Amino acid sequence: MSEGMVEGKVVVVTGGGRGIGRAISLMMASEGAKVVVNDIGASVAGEGTDGGPADEVVKEIKAAGGDAVASLHSVASASGGEAIVATAVDTFGRVDCVVNNAGILRDKYFHKMSAEEFEAVINVHLMGSFYVSSAAAKYFREQNSGSYIHITSNTGLIGNPGQANYGAAKLGIVGLSKGIAIDMARYNVRSNCISPSAWSRMVANIPLDTPERRRIAEMSEKFLSPEKNAPMAVFLASDAAKDITGQIFGTRGNELILFGHTRPVRSVHRSEGWTPQSIIDHGIKALQPSFVPLDVIMDVMGWEPV
């Protein structure tokens, strides 16, 4: 393979056997990285194991002249996170980038959602991102460099019905990324998020029980291939992005998006302090013009990606 943007770097991609993770793994390798393709091969709901997807991506990378190794460890435990990163270090001698992409869905409206359905999604997405990131942190500190790329979601950033567990996990990942970016800046370690849009197993699994959901599915399948999300991940793993940290990017077809961070939008003050009644009479009336409406993704990003 010719020298690429991440030549010689060692990149861990969790959930790297299918969909967006597969696309990222393949492009990282095509741009010169040695790749740990981590995937337990579970169903969308996180059930079962199958080493086939990770092995197939490794074979594809090697057939194209690249270098990769499969990891079948689960991200949903501290020991699994340690083992995933150890696979990189034991096989390739170092680790330069972690792409926290592994995820599952347990979609259900909140009033019907069980504690197990909530916890399972949190454990894979949010805790999994922590476990793998934490395992890599000691190596990043020692080598005074490293890049974290966390996969968040428009569900967490904007909102979507039937996904309170997924949204909580994905917005939690934004907070995790920002905390890592602040704490590890002194070690030249950067941490960013990508909110991807793609037609994948996870999107295809969402019930198409309304005309709007069917429209979203048709639009996604037509315009949003997983491969469209890989270039931003490769860029963020590269030295070209050495000064970029703490940001939230979106990839949507041929669009690149920069998301804002939560900031105060309006304030109101009373020198004598507040009572419940004065909040009604004055406070809420002053703040209400800046209330955020109860939007979902398609209210905010309803145009067709082309």
Rank of each mutant, 00 (worst) to 15 (best):
A286D: 13
Q247S: 10
G273F: 06
L236E: 03
F223Q: 10
Q288N: 04
A237T: 03
D295T: 14
S225I: 10
Q277W: 14
D239E: 15
V265W: 01
S238R: 08
D281W: 03
G273L: 05
S238D: 10
I297W: 01
I248P: 07
A240G: 03
G253Y: 13
L256Y: 11
T245P: 12
R266G: 01
D295I: 00
D243V: 03
H269N: 04
G283W: 08
A237N: 06
G253N: 13
L224Q: 11
L287G: 06
Q288G: 00
L287R: 03
E221V: 02
T251Y: 03
L294C: 08
F235P: 07
G283K: 04
T251K: 02
P231N: 06
K285L: 14
S271Q: 10
K242D: 13
Q277F: 13
P226F: 06
E227Y: 02
G246E: 14
K242P: 00
S271E: 15
V292D: 08
F291P: 00
Q288Y: 00
P276H: 05
H269Q: 07
L294R: 13
P264C: 05
P226Y: 06
P289C: 07
E227K: 08
P264W: 06
F259Q: 05
N254P: 05
M298V: 13
K222W: 05
N229V: 12
I284G: 02
N254V: 05
R263I: 08
D239L: 01
A230Q: 04
P264E: 06
E227Q: 13
R270Q: 15
I284Q: 09
A241W: 07
A240K: 14
E221P: 00
R266E: 14
N229Y: 09
D243I: 01
I279P: 00
H261S: 14
M232T: 11
T251I: 10
P231I: 02
Q288S: 13
S267T: 13
F223A: 12
